[in-house]
Nucleic acid binder design. Structure first.
Length: 502
RNA sequence: GGGCCGGUAGCUCAGUGGUAGAGCAUCUGACUUUUAAUCAGGUGGUCGCGGGUUCGACCCCCGCCCGGCUCACCA
């Protein structure tokens, strides 16, 4: 039998001992008077004398993270929501039963403690326990107290253990919630309505990506998990819901990396009677406020760089190529307007695709500060409205920060016949082997045929924005359960079977 | 999918072609303000899996599994 299983059985056996003392090994409701965070916030400044003069009684609950037993007394740190507080348990100060319970406690058990606040000789704010109760049993070995849990595979597979062992992880996911809350609140304040549109679609669209395929049994039809909500949200715009947004999952059947997870969360919002210039302004406002709400500052440190969300810069894609060109001789604006020059500097077959290809190779990773890049070629923008002055380009922009694309916006194409031509252009690209090219969506065109108001729309990658706000190097650090290959046999049911048979 | 790196005790990590190690955790004992508590003693390993080379493999070779980084693809 492995050490881990022996430990498991030892702890399993303690369930009976705990019950024999009159406690329920898996506890019952417990009214705590303060969260640990509230105690730390209110009493961290109080001196030992102040705490003694005005005795504060508290009732707290948490998971045992450390235990130091010394003869007839001892200390334990309990943790709640990522916050830790020390508890002092002395034989004289609790009942005989409670002291026996204390001697049975293991790392990872969850207990409730009532007592008064004081400072130890070394000055740490602590609870002097007067009563102790038992709330839940841990049967597992806990990660090392000093280093925590470092194995990234275990951290992602068993996120619960990561959250227990590494309190700062909770903080990152709190920040993620703040990001989402901030976007939602800001959009609601501006009159946007939150909606939910289908995740299972019989036609997929709104982005260039390969889909996941699933099947509905009773209808006997294959369905795609959506790659974007775009076409449904614009149907709502056509229907007269003038400002809508959705924050939800998209699914793209593509590789995983530090910046890509097959399912990821996207904010998309659409505003009738606006254009992409309005959204440039709005994007700057939204991001600035998100940074404030998530981190308390418009300047955010990311991987050693200071990102200033108070000042989102703007370049046209051509300006960016001229500015960030990596070779010794920077091209001129005339060069980057010239289809022959573009095709000579890229493997792509059209001037527009070549421009984007060059931009991605030369500029994208250099865009550290939050930056809007505007004017994208029509070939790569099948749903965006053309620029009236220059039909080869669309009224579209993307937002970059830390070398990552975090947003994409454009004035929506609302001319049904032009949309038909764009879809047909995509179909011919598909025939040439581009399996990410757009499908024809006739119901969407039909909606446009009823007349959709001039509209601007935008998508913002919530996971990536959260990476920036939490200084996360990998998208997996801001997704609670990132996609991993399934693990092998775990075998814990057998452990329980054996332990409970004894 | 390609390249590179990694998988050794529950956790964090050393290690060498010749009997598998440390710290923490765990167990026993001491200790009524400790805090990476301390002190004394003990338990604990299919060295990711499967082949091969060798007198002998955790170590060398081949295949596979899982993960990380990176490139490709993408947001």
């Amino acid at each position: 039998m492995s050490l881990e299983q022996e430990l498991f059985e030892q702890r399993f056996a303690r369930i009976r001992e705990i019950a024999a003392l009159g406690y329920r090994p898996y506890g019952q409701r417990f009214d705590f008077s303060h969260t640990l965070g509230a105690i730390l916030a209110s009493y961290s400044e109080k001196t030992a004398e102040e705490l003694e003069a005005n005795r504060v009684t508290v009732k707290v609950a948490g998971r045992i993270q450390t235990i130091r037993r010394m003869g007839k007394a001892g200390f334990t740190h309990i943790q709640q929501s990522g916050e830790r507080l020390q508890v002092y348990i002395k034989k004289d100060a609790v009942s005989e039963n409670e002291y026996k319970l204390w001697q049975l406690l293991d790392l990872g058990d969850i207990i409730g403690v009532e007592g008064y606040l004081f400072r130890t000789r070394t000055g740490e704010l602590s609870v002097h326990a007067e009563t102790v109760t038992f709330l839940s049993k841990n049967l597992m070995g806990m990660p090392e107290k000093y280093h925590g849990l470092e194995d990234v595979e275990i951290r992602y597979r068993q996120r619960y253990l990561d959250l227990i062992a590494n309190p700062e992880v909770q903080q990152a996911f709190q920040t993620r919630a703040k990001v989402v809350r901030s976007f939602r609140r800001q959009l609601e304040e501006r009159g946007f309505t939150e909606v939910e549109t289908p995740m299972m679609q019989s036609l997929y669209g709104g982005a260039a990506a390969r889909p996941f395929i699933t099947h509905h049994n009773t209808l006997d039809i294959d369905l795609y998990l959506r790659i974007a909500p775009e076409l449904y949200l614009k149907r709502l715009i056509a229907g007269g819901m003038e400002r809508v947004f959705e924050i939800n999952r998209n699914f793209r059947n593509e590789g995983v990396s530090t910046r890509h997870n097959p399912e990821f969360t996207m904010l998309e919002f659409y505003q009738s009677y606006a254009d992409y210039r309005d959204l440039m302004q709005l994007t700057g406002d939204l991001l600035k406020q998100v940074a404030l709400d998530a981190t308390g500052n418009t300047v955010v440190e990311y991987q050693g760089q200071q990102l200033d969300f108070g000042n989102v810069r703007r370049y046209s894609i051509r300006e960016a190529v001229c500015e960030y060109w990596k070779g010794p001789v920077k091209p001129s604006m005339d060069n980057v307007r010239d289809p022959e020059w573009l095709l000579a500097h890229s493997e792509k077959t059209t001037a527009g695709e070549a421009l984007v290809d060059i931009f991605e190779r030369h500029c994208e990773d250099a865009l550290i500060q939050p930056t809007i890049i505007h004017e994208y070629p029509v070939e790569v923008s099948p749903l965006a409205k053309q620029n009236p002055e220059e039909p080869a380009m669309t009224d579209r922009f993307e937002v970059f920060a830390a070398g990552m694309e975090i947003g994409n916006a454009f004035t929506e194409l609302n001319d049904p016949d032009e949309q038909r031509r764009r879809f047909e252009m995509q179909l011919s690209m598909r025939e040439k082997g581009d399996d990410e090219a757009h499908q024809m969506d006739e119901d969407y065109i039909r909606a446009l045929c009823y007349g959709m108001p001039p509209t601007a729309g935008e998508g913002i990658g919530i996971d990536r924005v959260t990476m920036l706000m939490t200084n996360a190097k990998s998208i997996r650090d801001v997704i609670l359960f990132p996609l991993l290959r399934p693990e092998g046999e775990i075998g814990i049911a057998q452990w329980l079977r054996e332990a409970s048979a004894k």
